[in-house]
Design a binder for these strands. Structure first.
Length: 348
DNA sequence: TAAATTTGACCTGC
DNA sequence: GCAGGTCAAATTTA
């Protein structure tokens, strides 16, 4: 197995894991009567993971490295388009005869993503995809309410990177951006963090929308924290057996609500729960308050488990039922299944 | 002052 | 000929 194949395999595995994780989240949100926007967000993430996984498989099947790791810097790309609505047949793959190598601009590999500007991704959506872009044009598109912006890789000259992307705001939903990527990046040594932030109109609009959402989310989070604090029950069935070998992964950290002073007592825990000590909520997701994240630690083994606690307000009782899912363990080899966890706390 | 964005002109493909 | 895509000079920003 060569290194390129290793990289593709890992990327594929990563996409599938992400898709599975999002499906789990969606299931939780469906059961907890979360907002349709939250459910839509996870649905989009699942679809995106499937598309990227298919993209990787597709390139492997035609004997090419996928666009994340192109075969040769600056080389013309094979004629492959992944526009979901046009080019993928019933099997999800295009006919082999269409893979003609062409030097035409339109022949570059193309794929499209739809990104909703919302609480979950905020500014990390359309403009923060891990690469550095420079705007080189903007055009009014016939029949479209909003102009289309054209970006190319900042390192086109430095690293001969010919990746471009087009960003267009949806007519129907101004919070949705259609992003079309063309060409592969060959500038993996040039992370976004080394480049000053973009000053595009999209960025400014995104900031405004994000700011408007923040106040509402903080209010939601406070209410959720109070509800959870008032009636927390933890069901730890199967806590020590549901481990996986996948890397530990939590949602991005938000700089929003933090409350270090609130503690839940272990007396609030079900009889079948392991001794968890005190709960120290220091973080509640402001974006998905129905779902809050904890970590449970075993200090004697220096290991901890990722624990996903969700609350579902039931109509028959005033107490929200809190279910506990063990998602991933960071160091499964070092976990002692017979030893209780020392703490259960919100992630920060 | 360097780097990024804007915008009108030009190019390309259908 | 038209619409979309790109170029490059002018302008703006940090």
């Amino acid at each position: 197995m060569d290194s390129a194949y290793n990289g593709e395999y890992k990327a594929l595995l990563n996409e599938l894991i992400q898709g599975m994780e999002c499906a789990k989240q969606l299931r939780v949100h469906l059961n907890s009567a979360a907002s349709s926007e939250t459910q839509y967000f996870f649905l989009q993430r699942i679809l995106s993971s499937y598309e990227k996984a298919l993209l990787i498989l597709k390139w492997r099947l035609v004997g090419q490295s996928h666009p994340v790791a192109p075969p040769l810097p600056g080389a013309p790309e094979p004629s492959i388009s992944l526009d979901r609505s046009l080019d993928i047949n019933n099997n999800g793959f295009k006919e082999q005869q269409d893979y003609n190598v062409s030097k035409k601009r339109k022949a570059m590999p193309t794929w499209t993503e739809q990104v909703r500007v919302g609480a979950e991704n905020g500014l990390e959506g359309p403009t923060e995809d891990g690469y550095s872009w420079r705007k080189y044009g903007q055009k009014d598109i016939l029949g479209a309410k909003y102009p289309r912006s054209y970006y190319r890789c900042t390192f086109r000259l430095m690293h001969n990177c010919w990746a471009t992307k087009q960003v267009q705001r949806s007519d129907d939903d101004p919070t949705v951006f259609d992003i079309t990527y063309k060409g592969a990046h060959t500038c993996t040594l040039a992370p976004t963090t080394s480049v000053p932030p973009l000053r595009s109109p999209e960025k400014q609009e995104l900031k405004q929308i994000h700011h408007q959402n923040e106040n509402f989310q903080a209010m939601q989070s406070n209410q959720m924290l109070m509800n959870l604090r008032a009636s927390l029950r933890v069901n730890t069935d199967g806590l020590d057996t549901k481990e996986t070998a996948f890397p530990f992964s939590f949602p991005p950290t938000f700089s929003g609500l933090t409350d270090e002073n609130q503690h839940f007592q272990s007396s609030q825990v079900d009889d079948n729960a392991v001794a968890l000590g005190t709960y120290s909520p220091s973080f509640v997701s402001p974006t998905t308050p129905e779902s809050n994240y904890f970590s449970a630690s075993q200090q004697h083994t220096n290991a901890f488990k990722g624990v996903h606690i969700s609350s579902a307000n039931t109509s028959s009782t005033n107490s929200p039922i809190v279910g506990l899912d063990l998602d991933y363990s960071l160091h499964p080899a070092t976990l002692d299944p017979n030893f209780p966890f020392d703490t259960l706390e919100f992630l920060t």
